[in-house]
Amino acid sequence: MTKQDNQWKLFFGAGFVVEPSKGLDGGEVKKRLQGSAVEVDTLPKEFFLPLFESADELPIEIVFVPERGKQKNEVRDWVRSILFDEKPKKEDAARKLALRLALATDQRSPEGLFVTLAGRKGVAYRIALWKFPADQTLQADVAKGMITIRLIEDAFSRESTYFKAAMLEGPKAETTFWTGRIEDRQAKHGVKGAAEFWTGDFLAARPVLTDAHGTRVVAKALRKIIDKTGALETREGLIAAAQVLRTQGGNRISIGDVAARYLPADERDEFIAAAGGPEVSDHPFRLEPEVLESELRLKSITLDGKFVIRGPLEDFDSVVSVTPAEEEGTVQVSLKGKITSESVSQR
């Protein structure tokens, strides 16, 4: 591999000033859309190149939604056009992306500068899309339909200040560029809260992890470490975590969240490894109560609101027996087994 093959070489850039235009007439918005392709050599590379090179670290993986069951997606087509078509088509596709972003953005989001960059390294092609805040670090000037993007000399910070980003990468083939990575720095809840409009309305995509599969992965990983751990206290902590999760159905979460919020610190790494590793720990999904119930397979009985008997569903009925007691409305519960530990909490 030559030195050139080891470095990203940018071959296309475009910038558009995107105003929030959701609900407005598409034709009018198109007329007002300001921006153009830019010569990549005129861009402030010291700012853009590091952003472009590190775009594969964006935390959330997404996949385009197919249209009518076919392997077709308009946004993916534009992405591929920017990467593989001739220059006029590249600019046209970048403009269509910018228009789509404007029409997906409502008044809650401020005006921004939408930048598209495409590059190649060996056989790999990459496209990165960003929405930057207007006039903070980057200055965009449009004259006679052409955009010029420069760094503001006295900008408070030249660190990457983008609001949102997306990156897609792959070789030139018919089936590549279905998946990509995104980040939403305006999201209220960190990586999990990537705005629906950035993922769904603008990119016509969704997270790679489905709600059902994300929930199944969490439940199976939890069961795996519950079954494995020998320490009763840890086991109790994990089972308690599983019980809490059962109340969280419908909530948007990630594997990393489950580890950080609900699990004992010592078990977090093992849990994440059992769930597929750090590469998948930031993917968002909604907990599905049905899947959680069927996979966790835990059963518990609470007596008088303070005594809890809890155990694996498959063994529960053979260990725990419940019979009516003399006093009406009460039951007698008995357990059969070996006492493996006993403790009294300290005051």
Partner: peptide, 30 residues
């Protein structure tokens, strides 16, 4: 996550051949 989901069937009603539903899916991330 599927990127294609379609019945494999003959468009010509007078032709009979392979039929099934084919769904092209992403390998789950884990």
């Amino acid at each position: 996550r599927e990127v294609e989901n379609r019945p494999m069937e003959q468009p010509d009603p007078e032709v009979f051949s392979y039929e099934a539903r084919h769904v092209v899916c992403l390998i789950p991330p884990d």
